[in-house]
């Protein structure tokens, strides 16, 4: 099966590979995996404290070309979005952008799950961190 040019491009030049300090309260970390193929994907995003915009995103994926491309693309799309906008990123958009064949759709699902996991990690950090400030605001 041939990979699309876009998959190859992301695979050969993955964007935003790396990791951030997972203890940073502004960093959300999502770790997901697929039992069948043994893929594992770590995706992190950093939210600007004042603007609420995702200012950085990093990933590290062990898996096939499509899994790497899906997560690489996801980090590109995350930057500059608000957390709520990021939650709207759908795996189908990744499928379309990368022209993933049906057998590789699960890779895009994994990327979407990773985004959701990272955001939920970020949100849980925020709520445990600022209970007093929110109580005052209300």
């Amino acid at each position: 099966m041939a990979y699309s040019d876009k998959v190859l491009d992301h695979y050969n030049n993955p964007r935003n590979v790396g990791s951030m300090d997972r203890n940073d309260p502004n960093v959300g970390t999502g770790m997901v995996g697929a039992p069948e193929c043994g893929d594992v994907m770590k995706l992190q995003l950093k939210v600007n404290e004042t603007s609420g915009i995702i200012e950085d995103a990093k990933f590290k994926t062990f898996g096939c070309g499509s899994a790497i491309a899906s997560s690489s693309l996801a980090t590109e799309w995350l930057k500059g979005k608000s957390v709520d906008e990021a939650l709207l990123i759908k795996n189908t958009a990744i499928v379309n952008e990368l022209s993933l064949p049906p057998v590789k759709i699960h890779c895009s699902v994994l990327a979407e799950d990773a985004i959701k996991a990272a955001i939920s990690d970020y949100k849980s950090k925020q709520t445990t961190r600022k209970p007093v400030a929110e109580a005052v605001a209300h």
Partner: peptide, 12 residues
């Protein structure tokens, strides 16, 4: 794949 989340500690 989608149906079965892997335990987080195992993923780590």
């Amino acid at each position: 794949q989608k149906s079965n989340p892997v335990p987080p500690e195992l993923l780590e």
